[in-house]
């Protein structure tokens, strides 16, 4: 099947990528699943969106997606951020698949920076867009060196870095892209999700796939796999907490965005996961600013 452009100058395959490229990516995905947390090098292709804008996630999604899939795309937890809209429109066009904003309805969810609040189910696939897949990169810029560290499971440098934070600040100063250890072997970058989302990766029912296009790496966490955030006995890992509930739906224990309301310091906190927030409001939940904000949004 090919998808033609109007003037016949150029034609593209189903889901954009050619079959040889898909096979190459599919092989990398299988090895990634077989070696959880290990970054499989792959010959990443140029995509019709810029590197750094989700080309890794898009290549993974394009290689796994089929006509029966239902795709959800989020950026910052939201379905309607411009890049999420753009990627969703891309797949609707080149793969002619059904898209959704409902977490529960999606078979594939491509995400940048968040994991949905709603617990993912068996059979769902979460595809992460990853800018810098190497968790050790900011401690050691050389790939040749970090590769050796992973080979030897030599992660002392990472612990030293985290401990220096504690010595300097009294706590670990990493708030997103917080490193995890997968199945007691590979230290892995969870992509720049807030560390709030790290616990959701642990023993998830869903398959988690990670694509880094510019850095040319694919990695994976199978369902029911141990994913543990690095920490110390005396300084256990802890997630962010918010003092107030979502101003729109009243949810607690979810990740909130701070929204500036005016130039006099007025602000509110609302769910970063827009689908979750909308569902709650449909179910009758109301936050303290729900009425006003709803009007303001129209």
């Amino acid at each position: 099947m090919t998808i033609g452009t109007d003037d016949g100058l150029a034609t593209y395959n189903f889901a954009y990528l050619d079959e040889q490229t898909k096979r190459m990516i599919r092989r990398a995905i299988l090895k990634g699943i077989a070696i959880p947390g290990y970054q499989v090098p792959f010959a990443s292709r140029e995509m019709p969106m810029p590197y750094g804008w989700g080309t890794g996630g898009v290549q993974v999604t394009a290689s796994i997606i089929g006509p029966d899939d239902v795709l959800k795309v989020i950026d910052q937890g939201a379905d309607d951020t411009t890049n999420a809209v753009s990627i969703r429109a891309f797949f609707a066009k080149v793969a002619d698949v059904e898209t959704t904003t409902e977490t529960a309805k999606a078979s594939i969810i491509q995400t940048r920076h968040r994991i949905p609040e709603e617990k993912l189910k068996d059979g769902q696939i979460l595809v992460y867009q990853v800018p810098i897949p190497e968790p050790l990169r900011f401690l050691e810029p050389r790939e040749t060196e970090t590769r050796k560290m992973h080979a030897l499971a030599e992660y002392g440098l990472m612990h030293v870095k985290l401990y220096e934070d504690i010595a300097k600040n009294g706590h670990i100063a990493t708030t997103y892209a917080y490193p995890v250890k997968v199945e007691d072997r590979y230290v892995m970058d969870p992509s720049p999700t807030p560390k709030f989302d790290n616990p959701k990766m642990h023993m998830s029912d869903a398959l988690q796939l990670f694509g880094a296009g510019r850095e040319k790496r694919i990695y994976a966490v199978p369902p029911h796999t141990k994913v543990v955030s690095l920490d110390f006995e005396d300084y256990p890992f802890e997630i962010q907490t918010f003092e107030e509930p979502c101003a729109m739906c009243g949810a607690q224990g979810v990740y909130l965005d701070e929204v500036i309301l005016d130039d006099r310091g007025g602000r509110m906190f609302v769910c970063s996961d827009t689908d979750y927030c909308e569902k709650r409001r449909e179910d009758g939940h109301r936050g303290h600013l729900a009425g006003d904000a709803m009007e303001a949004a129209e």
Partner: peptide, 20 residues
């Protein structure tokens, strides 16, 4: 018969099998 979709569905079965 249809390599594009056949490959995709076989791959998905293998991926599911490898993941579980």
């Amino acid at each position: 018969g249809d390599p594009v979709f056949a490959s995709q569905s076989v791959f998905r079965a293998v991926m599911d099998a490898m993941a579980r």
